[in-house]
Design a protein around this nucleic acid. Structure first.
Lengths: 350, 350
DNA sequence: GGAGGTTACGTTCAACGTAACGATC
DNA sequence: GATCGTTACGTTGAACGTAACCTCC
């Protein structure tokens, strides 16, 4: 069994069981992958993938488990590489973020700007994700970090770091019935209007629906989107009362809309960073977390990821709406890596 | 980076940094290992091992971490192999047990006999271990399972399965002052005599010492051993009052000695099986656990090992001294493996 | 000078890609 | 007949072992 065989298997699986496509991705010939797969199956003594004659049609039950284990192996190898890159003080690499649109649009820009200033050759890739969706397959997608919002207690698997808290705000066009309130909008008032809010709030177990049903009320949705900016568009178009994260509000929105706090009974949301358990985290990924949540301790994070401790995280601070006004975010002093960096040529004498 | 390189690194480390010795173990030439190590170090960009000129003198700090990660990789690969062997219904393989002498001598014989009957080609290797020693490096030694005793709450790392409980018994020669008691020996009486007991009970945080000091008493040791049979020898020689696990008592001992229960204030001991977290467990290892602790659920164990659940284990039963009298232990019905076994030639159609 | 690690070199075999083939839709 | 996987085969290069070399006790 070789790493190459395992990587081929995963490539084939990730290419939706198309060997030719997987071969392209791996920059190898198709027969080569075919062969590696066969070798692996021969060694294990059973089929991993099911065949319809000559085409691959699925994964055997045992294959599922093999794939899970194979993923662990290649992740572990990636960890060694990442660790070495940290030791070398390498400042290049990939950073694959899976994040809801709201963070990508309203939280990450200044933060990533600072990060890229520090690591000019860093390659950040932002993968969009539904506001609250895909909590299960958290970090199995190979990404380095996932950002999620929760209002309840269901934290997805992996190492979950509470970054900051934020509140939802009510958004109505000037001249709307609620516009003259000048105080938090009560749950009852929310229930009386058609709402325009996040897709994820529509689920009956969402914090919004639960807060309303706890008060004996029920939400009525005019329209929902995954994207706070789209929500604004529909509020502007008069479809209903908007309910968005304060993160998404910019100065111009306060000009155009009337923005009111929501009933305090509507729970705060928490932004979490989810790190894959056991994988070594690159220094720049920790830097990103530091920028998002200065209250977190880097060593605590490392210990949590490698499983050697289960720290009690500090309560996250409230997000300040106009991040830029508070000054450009700063990076902690370097190096943050847990080990002393060795210049490559140094000969280590005992 | 290849698996071979990682394996070479570990072989060198495990051969106490002697490449030549490691080469012998790996059935390869010494320059080959030397080369693999160099390739790995070149790829990582820093030294893993420290050199005094041409001899290897130690491990760099970063190297320690690389070794830790490398161990994880090769363990994970071993897991794939073990899983495949389970799927194939393979009944051959190694089972490396690390166990205190008492279990090896008094608990395992009938159990392993049954196991070997079921798996005639199984290769069991028993590694001796101090009665309570080496709790940290639990399963890092590459073994499949570790048996330990605890009387307190300090359970070593890994997946700890409570197998059974046992009590300590007081052992005195016929004619000894305590011999006519015919009732449990009180703590005060124990403290008045020189004791002959397990090495591990000598530690000031042992359950024996704690029980005595809680009663304002202090133990006096005449002699201690890791081996219950040695303890009997010294009791026979009149060195003091013996204190041994009931497991270690055989019919002949009741003839020769006077055996009395110890004060109930002396806590019961629990026998634990420690499995390495995350490693796939071979079916025969689970069978062994079943024989030792029929109350444990096989699927619970699998879930605990792969990290997908953290079951509440049932309270272990009390060990019965004369195991053989209760009948030969029986194995659960087969197959216990979590997956359907595939005959090797079967073509899986989707 | 011996134990133990590195360098040099020739050989071998494993892995790759091209091309031909087969099967399935 | 187009798509996709397998088999066949020739070539190349990576990895191994032997032997020579170095170097520190």
């Amino acid at each position: 069994m070789t790493l190459k065989e395992l990587r081929c298997l995963l490539a084939i699986v990730d290419a939706e069981l198309n060997i030719s496509a997987a071969a392209e991705i791996m920059h190898a010939s198709q027969p080569s992958l075919s062969r590696h797969l066969k070798l692996l199956e021969d060694e294990l003594g059973f089929q991993i993938l099911m065949r319809h004659g000559r085409s691959i049609s699925g994964i055997t039950p045992a294959g599922q488990e093999v794939i899970r284990l194979a993923r662990r192996v290649v992740n572990d190898v990636a960890s060694i590489r990442a660790y070495a890159a940290n030791v070398r003080g390498e400042e290049t690499g990939d950073l694959v973020l899976t994040t809801p649109q709201t963070y990508a649009r309203h939280v990450l820009p200044p933060v990533l700007s600072t990060l890229i200033q520090r690591y000019p050759r860093l390659n950040v890739r932002i993968q969009n994700m539904g506001e609250g969706a895909a909590p299960e397959r958290a970090c199995d997608n190979g990404g380095d970090m996932m950002l999620v919002s929760t209002a309840g207690d269901r934290v997805p698997p992996g190492v979950a770091l509470p970054l900051f808290r934020w509140k939802r705000m009510v958004l109505v066009p000037r001249g709307h019935a609620l516009a003259r309130l000048d105080r938090p909008v009560a749950l009852g008032e929310l229930a009386r209007h058609a709402l325009v809010t996040y897709e994820s709030s529509r689920r009956s177990d969402s914090s919004l629906c639960r807060a309303l049903s706890d008060a004996g009320l029920r939400a009525r949705f005019a329209c929902s989107a995954e994207d706070a900016d789209l929500i604004k568009v529909y509020v502007r178009a008069g479809l209903g009362v908007g309910l968005v994260g304060e993160l998404a509000l910019e100065p111009a929105d306060h000009q155009e809309f009337v923005v009111l706090p929501a009933d305090p009974a509507l729970p705060e949301c928490v932004a979490w960073a989810i790190l894959p358990t056991g994988r070594v985290v690159r220094d720049y990924a920790l830097d990103l977390i530091q920028l998002l949540a200065p209250q977190l301790d880097v060593d605590d994070i490392r210990r949590a990821v490698d499983g050697s401790a289960r720290p009690a995280w500090p309560r996250p601070r409230l997000w300040q709406s106009d991040y830029e006004d508070v000054g450009t975010p700063v990076l902690p002093s370097r190096p943050i890596s847990g080990v002393t960096r060795l210049p490559m040529q140094t000969t280590y004498l005992g």
